[in-house]
Design a protein around this nucleic acid. Structure first.
Lengths: 225, 225
DNA sequence: ACAGAATTTGAACAGGAGTTCAAATTCTAG
DNA sequence: CTAGAATTTGAACTCCTGTTCAAATTCTGT
């Protein structure tokens, strides 16, 4: 007798399946163009059935966004814990962000559209978003403090970074000419170089250190996108 | 006897008024949350009346996006015509973009959501968008060619720039702590520095050269946002 | 095999969205 | 002043979307 399916373990797995199906349709048709019926169709189920797993569309949307931010946050925390130079650390943060968003996280697209959430559901998502932003900004701050980075407003720099990396979701498509790992590397390089104090040689992680992405933290067994 | 109001000059002015009203509501409520009735209400008119000036919502949306891209393009062309070093030129392009989007162009928000346009209406907008991207990329290309910029994929760099600057629309609010001119300056500095070949001192325009934005090209008499 | 819970079905409802249009009103030229 | 065009009104219509729910089905433990 479980009125709220979120407790059961199996139904929670199903919720993830729905998340992935929904995210697939979001990518194809766009977040706002997809209705509950589209999501149901993608999963070969009936509309009403979705409401067994989610109270409403907002609930489903919030679940997607939570998942995306969870992924970003857990990775960012891991990187932050390593004691590295600010430039190396920022490089990894940016690299991980681009990679996660376009390769591992199914719900990444939703992450771009917090405005789509109604205020009640938006709040917890917003809190996580701010926490993530804090991690980024702290890294930039440290870089400036240590003289490694130029004297700039870390808030503005962080927003520039967030914009560049989030925007990738809008144009990157898996089948395209460029590989996501290479794009992630170039983004990280570009956005760190822009902060470095002129004259200081950057210290970037080599590719072996970037394998940290594959197979840890991400909860899905098969690669998703 | 004019069946299509687009010919008449006065109705064209009215179309612009509607564009501005619509854009105001877009900023407040978000593009997808605003209906034709909201737009009509903002302008103290009735819904049906909107359809005297626009065939349908898509037509209105396309008109907004066209306007935004027209503004960006005309400014970018002006900058491109000046014979300047690639870094100076790119600086001005980025500065102008941020400034236009957040200070002068009312319809800037629409510019972010090309996907909201149905294929038929989307095509011409897409063509202009590509033209704009070309101008940006050419500048980056020139910088690389001349050795001023590092050896990178100009396409990727351009996309990073576009992401960073477009994203500003999502977070910048006129009443906020930071002034848009300062943000635009920092963005330009950051994104150009990231491309510069290490060791080469940048050549940025001074503030007097950035006044090029105010009062030219933009068709509205009063400052809009 | 069976009872009771968990899940799925199928159809319906309510509301809001874009859109249409004939009638009323306002504007404009001669 | 007045006819004809241009614009606005007001209400309606249609379609689509999120949502609900009782009934049917499937699953699970004993």
């Amino acid at each position: 007798m479980s009125l709220s399916p979120s407790q059961n373990n199996k139904t929670l797995r199903r919720r993830r399946e729905i998340l992935e199906g929904a995210s697939r349709v979001f990518r194809e048709r766009g977040l706002h163009a997809t209705g509950m019926r589209d999501i149901a169709a993608e999963l070969d189920m009936h509309v009403g059935n979705l409401y067994y797993y989610f109270r409403n569309k907002q609930d489903l949307l919030a679940f997607c966004q939570q998942d995306a931010l969870d992924g970003l946050l857990s990775r960012a925390r891991t990187v932050r814990k390593e004691e590295l130079r600010a430039d190396t650390q920022l490089f990894k943060l940016i690299y991980a962000h681009v990679h996660l968003l376009n390769y591992e996280l199914p719900a990444s697209l939703a992450h771009l559209e917090i405005e789509a959430l109604e205020p009640e559901v938006r709040q917890p998502v917003l809190r996580q978003r701010d926490e993530y932003e804090r991690l980024l900004r702290e890294t930039v701050d440290e870089g400036i403090q240590s003289g490694l980075f130029r004297q700039t407003d870390p808030k503005v720099a962080t927003l520039a970074i967030r914009g560049a990396v989030n925007w990738t979701v809008k144009w990157f498509r898996p089948g395209g000419p460029a590989k996501i790992a290479e794009i992630a590397r170039q983004f990280a390089e570009y956005l760190v170089m822009g902060l470095l104090t002129p004259g200081i040689p950057p210290e970037f992680p080599d590719s072996s250190e970037l394998a940290f992405l594959v197979g840890s933290g991400s909860p899905s067994p098969e690669q998703r996108l």
